[in-house]
Each structure stands twice: as structure tokens, then as C-alpha cells.
């Protein structure tokens, strides 16, 4: 027996729909962070504690998609696209695979749970990574209805903000139209 009759090769066929979904979610969340840094005090304070020029990325291994968010020298938070090549990134958060990203972005798993289940690789300072996770949680509270957000965040805040509805509208509008 040569063994060849029982052998075949499995080429990587890709998962285009899932990749597209995660790419859209990352794009939207990245722009929502940019908007939330302008309208929400808690997010603003988290970024204020990070050094000027601080940039972080959240992406999926091995080939993306990703989002990059950074702080300008003047302290403004900006979404900087999905291309990591050629950019100086202080903190890289990499989801180990697309299915892990799907669990996170369909809110079956919170960012904290995904971290605890070893779905993320963090390359950078741990305090900064914790700050980014808190920012992501805060943004998800604004973007999602409470019943879903409770699944997506570690702890749903008792008082998510005095102007929650107004902030939510401003963040949605900012994320969709990209106001800076």
C-alpha cells in the first residue's frame, strides 16, 4: 500500500463572509472610539492617562483585518485605518483566529472573557492594554442595546452616563460619518 489513495490536501479556502463581518465591526468600533473620546468623560480620561502619540491596534491573526487607533501629539484620538504596515504601534492586540474574533464581535464572549480564554495575544504594556479593554467595554455600552451589551462587557455600569442617549446618538453619528 502506498498510502496515497487515502491522502488528500486541504487548501485554505478562506472565510470571506466572516472576514468581511469582522472588518466592518472593527472599522465601526474604531471610528466609535474616536467619537467616544470626544463625548464621553470616562473614555476621555482613559486616553488622557496614555502618553501623547500612543497608538494601538486590534486585529486578527494571521492576515487581519485590523483597526488602528492613536492619540495625536495634541491629545486628539483618531481612527487610523486598518493597515498596520509601516505604522509605529505601541500596543498590538491580536486575536489568534477569525473564529475568536467572531465570538467577540457577535458578543458571545466579552473582551475580558476572550482574554481569560487565551484568545488574544497582547504585545505591549499591560496597563495600556487594560485601559484599551476598558475603553472597548465603554464604547460597546454605547453602541449596543443593554441586553446585548451585558453579554459583551465584563460589568455593565450602573449609570453609563448622565447623557447616555445624547452621547449614544453623537457616537453613532460620529462613527458613521467620521466627524473628528
Amino acid at each position: 500500500m502506498t498510502g496515497m489513495e487515502n491522502y488528500r490536501e486541504l487548501p485554505p479556502r478562506g472565510k470571506p463572509l466572516k472576514r468581511a463581518y469582522v472588518a466592518v465591526m472593527l472599522w465601526f468600533v474604531g471610528r466609535a472610539i474616536q467619537a467616544a473620546a470626544r463625548v464621553d468623560d470616562a473614555v476621555r480620561e482613559e486616553f488622557a492617562a496614555l502618553p501623547a502619540g500612543f497608538t494601538f491596534s486590534l486585529g486578527v491573526l494571521p492576515r487581519g483585518p485590523a483597526m488602528i487607533v492613536g492619540k495625536d501629539e495634541d491629545g486628539r484620538v483618531r481612527y487610523r485605518g486598518w493597515q498596520t504596515a509601516g505604522k509605529r504601534i505601541d500596543l498590538q492586540m491580536k486575536i489568534k483566529n477569525l473564529e475568536g474574533a467572531i465570538l467577540m464581535f457577535t458578543f458571545q464572549e466579552s473582551t475580558a472573557a476572550a482574554t481569560a480564554r487565551n484568545r488574544l495575544i497582547v504585545d505591549g504594556e499591560v496597563p495600556a492594554a487594560c485601559a484599551v479593554v476598558r475603553v472597548l467595554d465603554r464604547v460597546e455600552v454605547y453602541l449596543l442595546p443593554k441586553i446585548i451589551a451585558k453579554l459583551a462587557v465584563k460589568r455593565y455600569p450602573d449609570r453609563p452616563g448622565e447623557d447616555k442617549l445624547r452621547n449614544r446618538i453623537r457616537i453613532y453619528v460620529g462613527a458613521v460619518f467620521g466627524f473628528r
Binding site: 489513495e5 488528500r8 486541504l10 485554505p12 478562506g14
Partner: peptide
């Protein structure tokens, strides 16, 4: 199992050999 393993490596960019004998 073949379908499961094909799905596992689908987004990896890796071509894997699968021997069932």
C-alpha cells in the same frame, strides 16, 4: 472530521495534508 479540519485551517493560509488510512 475532514470538513472540521478544513474549516479550522480555512483562514490560515496553510495547506494541510489529510491521511485517513
Amino acid at each position: 472530521m475532514e470538513r472540521t479540519m478544513a474549516a479550522v485551517f480555512a483562514d490560515s493560509g496553510l495547506t494541510v495534508g489529510f491521511f485517513t488510512g
